[in-house]
Amino acid sequence: MEEKDVPARRAYDASGRRAAAEQRRLHVAEVAARLFAEHGWNGTTLALVAEEAGVSVELLTKTFGSKAGLFMAAFRTLGFGHRGGLQSAFADLRLADEPDLDARLDRFVEFVTATVVRMGPLVWVLGHGAEQDPVLRELVRGAHQGHAVMCAEVVHLLAAGEAAPDAVDEVYLLTRSETYLTLAQHRGWTPERYAAWLRRSLRTAIDGPPAGR
């Protein structure tokens, strides 16, 4: 019996479904960021986010795991957009590929300033939530550890010579959202003034004070 040609079965392409799921996840995180900023930790429920985002509560728990997971996704999305968390956003700067030390510093200062300004509306919510929710508290502890790792890499990339002894800890303090908010809310600083101060302070923190001081 003569065999007939059978059309090859087209391989299933899941890329479109993954892209749609990622877009939906980003949309939900953006909606959650707005609601957490408006209503705080206690006033923002999974049901409220689901209703505003046009999804089910079941999808929220499946995607984010818990209210704490949803908040951290919202927090990262507010600060870094589609780039994910701090580590991936920092890697996107590609500081190691920039040969000029001052240009590296400028790029990092711009990154930090933009991030802390965007994250500002949720910083107070983060503190309140971490006091009440042990899951969020653990997630925040992990985020702090990731921030410290980034600061160590920054010191390595921005040091003109041997870094000052406390460089990593000082860079950590300088680049916290709370530091920006203290200056902005209590002292009326603009993002531009913060950026100029941050640049000067980072250089001193990493390399130490100029000789003779």
Rank of each mutant, 00 (worst) to 15 (best):
Thr179His: 12
Ala53Trp: 01
Pro191Cys: 09
Leu183His: 09
Arg203Val: 14
Leu93Cys: 10
Phe108Asn: 12
Phe75Lys: 14
Asp5Cys: 14
Ala74Val: 13
Leu139Lys: 08
Lys62Ala: 04
Trp197Asp: 08
Arg193Leu: 12
Arg34Cys: 07
Ala74His: 11
Glu22Leu: 14
Asp13Asn: 12
Pro7His: 05
Val55His: 11
Ala37Gly: 00
Arg24His: 07
His128Ile: 12
Ala68Asn: 11
Asp100Tyr: 00
Ser88Phe: 08
Gly212Glu: 14
Val49Thr: 11
Ala74Leu: 08
Gly54Phe: 07
Lys62Asn: 10
Pro165Trp: 02
Arg76Met: 11
Pro99Cys: 02
Val116Glu: 09
Arg17Phe: 12
Glu30Gln: 14
Leu122Ile: 01
Ala47Ser: 15
Ala160Gly: 10
Glu192Pro: 10
Glu52Thr: 07
Glu98Met: 13
Val116Asn: 00
Met119Gln: 15
Leu46Asp: 08
His39Met: 06
Val116Tyr: 10
Ala114Thr: 09
Leu183Ser: 03
Leu35Tyr: 03
Ala20Thr: 00
Glu170Pro: 01
Thr204Cys: 07
Thr182Tyr: 14
Ser201Lys: 07
Ala205Ser: 09
Arg193Phe: 05
Ala20Ile: 09
Asp169Thr: 08
Gly142Val: 07
Gly84Phe: 07
Thr77His: 15
Phe71Ser: 13
Lys4Val: 14
Leu183Thr: 02
Phe64Glu: 08
Gly54Met: 03
Gly161Lys: 00
Val154Tyr: 00
Pro7Tyr: 11
Glu98Lys: 11
Asp169Ala: 15
Gln185Tyr: 08
Val155Asn: 05
Arg199Phe: 02
Tyr194Ile: 06
His147Ala: 09
Arg141Asp: 10
Arg187Trp: 12
Ala164Thr: 03
Ala148Glu: 13
Leu95Ile: 11
Thr190Phe: 04
Ala32His: 03
Leu48Val: 05
Lys62Val: 10
Val28Thr: 03
Ala32Pro: 05
Ala184Cys: 06
Glu51Pro: 06
Glu2Leu: 12
Glu138Thr: 12
Leu101Phe: 07
Gly43Trp: 15
Ala11Leu: 11
Lys67Phe: 03
Asp92Leu: 13
Ala53Thr: 10
Arg94Pro: 05
Leu173Ala: 15
Ser56Ala: 03
Gly188Trp: 10
Val31Tyr: 01
Ala152Met: 00
Pro99Trp: 04
Ser177Leu: 02
Trp189Glu: 13
Thr204Glu: 14
Pro134Met: 03
Thr204Gln: 08
Thr44Ile: 08
Phe36Val: 01
Val112Ser: 04
Ala167Trp: 00
Gly40Met: 00
Ala195His: 13
Leu139Thr: 09
Glu30Thr: 03
Phe75Leu: 15
Leu157Ile: 13
Asp169Cys: 01
Leu202Ile: 04
Glu110Val: 07
Glu3His: 15
Ser177Glu: 09
Glu38Tyr: 06
Arg17Lys: 14
Val123Phe: 10
Pro121Cys: 03
Ala21Glu: 12
Leu86Ser: 01
Ala130Thr: 04
Thr179Gly: 09
Lys67Gln: 11
Val171Met: 02
Tyr180Cys: 02
Arg176Phe: 03
Leu126Asn: 02
Arg17Met: 06
Lys67Arg: 15
Asn42Gln: 14
Asp106Asn: 15
Trp41Asp: 08
Asp133Cys: 06
Pro191Tyr: 01
Gly161Trp: 04
Asn42Pro: 11
Ala195Ile: 02
Gly212Ile: 00
Arg83Asn: 12
Gly79Val: 02
